[in-house]
Every structure is written in structure tokens, then in C-alpha cells.
């Protein structure tokens, strides 16, 4: 992936700061990767190369770790992330139906980001809210009892938010309020 203008400098700056703070022992590899991803949203190749150099290990080993753990991603995520819980309780009452609904509405597959980088969709292991199954994490907020209709509601709320931001027209604010209160 080609980096946008200025991205290179940002990456180098953050990686350097984090390495300076964390130290250069191999044991720090995972915390360093976590912190870099927190800052950048993903792990660009350049960041992994600099981390490898900083910790004095082969680049392929850093790539190995980054591809082993679910947490790490190699591509920038969408502005908003939908994480559909696929724990047992959620699966049994329609977690896969929720995923399919998102896939249909967003026209992407799980693990992908919409072309405008606005939304990304992934499945996650049990988030531990089994009693509200099926559960979807909308960014960091937990939405319980997510039916296909609810999926429409969640997306509609984002649409009206965008409209509000872009056009400054007040329409749809009530619907957003509604979403908050029945959440």
C-alpha cells in the first residue's frame, strides 16, 4: 500500500516515541505493536520494519506476530467499526443473521472496509454480553438484541449524522435521539 503524503513522517515519529518509551527487548514486541496500532489504527509495513530494526529481530518475525494475533490489522480501518459478536449465545440467536444484514447493507464482506473507508465490519470472539445476544459493538458501544431491522436503524443513525454534518439540516435528529434512548 502506498502511503499518503506526510504519513511516512507520522509513522516514523510515533514508532520512535514508542520504542524510546518501551525499550528494545524482544519481550516488548507485542506491547509495542499494540501501542503503534493504537496510534496509527493499523500496522503499516514501514512501522513493522522500524520496530524490527529497533528490537534487532528479523522483519519477518514481526510480520509473523502481526499476522498471528487477531488484534492486529495491516490495513487502515473504517471511521466506524462494526464488530459482530460470534460467541455461542449470539450465534444461537442470530449473530450470523446480523453479520449477513451488515454485509448486505454495506455491500462488503466481513473483514472488509467500505471503499469510502467509512465503515468496517468484522466478527469478534465473545465480548461477554451473552445475556443481550445477539450483540454488535458499534465502535466501542454495545448494542444488544440486534435484528436485521436494528441493523438498518444503526446505519440510518450514521447516515443522518453525516447528513447533519454535511448539510447542517436538522432532519433526522429525532431518529438519532431515538436510537440513543432505546439502546
Amino acid at each position: 500500500m502506498t502511503l499518503l503524503e506526510g504519513e511516512r513522517e507520522v509513522i516514523l515519529k510515533h514508532v520512535k516515541e514508542i520504542l524510546d518509551d518501551r525499550g528494545t527487548s524482544r519481550e516488548n514486541l507485542i506491547p509495542v505493536l499494540q501501542q503503534v496500532q493504537d496510534k496509527l489504527g493499523y500496522l503499516p509495513d514501514l512501522a513493522m520494519q522500524k520496530i524490527a530494526a529497533g528490537l534487532d529481530i528479523p522483519t519477518v518475525d514481526v510480520y509473523g506476530i502481526a499476522t498471528f494475533y487477531n488484534q492486529f490489522r495491516m490495513n487502515p480501518p473504517g471511521d466506524h467499526q462494526f464488530k459482530v459478536c460470534m460467541g455461542t449465545a449470539c450465534y444461537m440467536v442470530g449473530g450470523n443473521i446480523a453479520i449477513e444484514s451488515f454485509e448486505r447493507r454495506l455491500e462488503i464482506r466481513e473483514g472488509e472496509t467500505t471503499p469510502d473507508r467509512k465503515f468496517s465490519l468484522e466478527r469478534v470472539a465473545c465480548v461477554g454480553c451473552c445475556t443481550m445476544a445477539p450483540v454488535v459493538l458499534v465502535d466501542e458501544e454495545v448494542e444488544g438484541h440486534v435484528t436485521p431491522t436494528r441493523v438498518d436503524g444503526i446505519l440510518l443513525a450514521f447516515e443522518t449524522e453525516t447528513e447533519k454534518e454535511e448539510g447542517k439540516n436538522g432532519e433526522g435528529i429525532e431518529e438519532k435521539e431515538e436510537r440513543r434512548s432505546d439502546a
Binding site: 509473523g64 494475533y69 487477531n70 470472539a125
Partner: peptide, 25 residues
């Protein structure tokens, strides 16, 4: 605190320790 990176297999003790050492779980 050591924060795991999302690999179920790290619940297995030797995998857990490997991941704390900066390796694959």
C-alpha cells in the same frame, strides 16, 4: 498487566507465556 492480543490459544499456559515473551502464542 499484560494485554493479550486476541488469540484463544493463549489461554493454554505455554502459549500464554510464549506470547508474553514476544513470540507467537
Amino acid at each position: 498487566i499484560f494485554e493479550g492480543s486476541g488469540a484463544f490459544v493463549c489461554g493454554e499456559e505455554s502459549a500464554l507465556v510464549s506470547s508474553m515473551e514476544g513470540k507467537m502464542g
